[in-house]
Design a protein around this nucleic acid. Structure first.
Lengths: 135, 135
DNA sequence: GCGCCAATTTACGTTTACGTCAAAACCCTG
DNA sequence: CAGGGTTTTGACGTAAACGTAAATTGGCGC
């Protein structure tokens, strides 16, 4: 009884993450995933599975596949010189910048939603109170 | 010297928020903004300006214009009965749910980026140290 | 060997969110 | 009132991210 299998079919991943095989193949087309092959069949490794998870998380954050590509590349980049390291660090800095902006946007929005909801709840309570007396 | 003007041209807003007039008109097409008119010319009120800000924030968060529409509608909804209130509160709950997911995604990603960067920084330092001795 | 089902390739279709002209109207200025 | 800048309304184009349909291929179960 193993929890992490060592290979998956496209249907396995499609079902697990609730996306279509077409979408997964599309990500491969764009170079985001490169599964092994058994003849024609695609064989996905646990590593491929993680990449798919990263892709989908990127999508939830509203990034384009190209942006997701860049972020994922950060993870398994093997810098081959000082210049490469600098570029990598710079990429990290940029990504963080964008993410921080999003973080702020979300917190602000969450605050506003909360305000709307509590105001709404308050008015609802009032309406009900009056409703009781009137009706 | 007033800071908040009481009307703006489309070019004013386009410049302020760094979007094209075309985009702003497009949002109007989709019902996200409804500026006044002076003949043909569109006249944007401070309220319209705020709506545009909300739209752009929604875009930064990766929402579609349709989703943004729904969120914005929360702000100036004038519920006209108990059922309306309930629906509004439900909408708030959904939005919060989605935003919390995003918040989590962002925090995780930020953590990972930080890890990548610090690891990178460390390797860079080592490379430099060795480089000094060797070269 | 044959039917069946899953997976693949190819290719065209679709939706979203604008970009990019083009042509006409408006407005101010000299 | 001619010229120049701004704005408007079409209308067509486009990039991204798949959807969808059709034709093929590849095991498997009997």
């Amino acid at each position: 009884m193993r929890k992490t299998r060592d290979s998956y079919s496209i249907a396995d991943l499609a079902k697990e993450f609730d996306v279509t095989p077409r979408a997964i193949r599309f990500y491969e087309d764009k170079g985001l995933i490169t599964p092994e092959r058994d003849g024609l069949r695609r064989i996905y490794s646990p590593r491929d599975r993680v990449r798919l998870m990263l892709i989908l998380r990127g999508k939830r954050l509203g990034f384009s596949l190209k942006e997701i590509q860049e972020i994922i590349d950060l993870y398994d980049a093997e810098p081959t010189g000082e210049a490469q390291y600098m570029k990598l660090i710079e990429s990290c800095r940029k990504s963080r910048e964008s993410l921080r902006q999003q973080l702020e946007d979300i917190q602000v929005t969450l605050g506003e939603i909360d305000a709307v909801e509590s105001q709404c709840q308050k008015l609802l309570d009032e309406t009900r109170a009056h409703g009781q007396k009137v009706g």
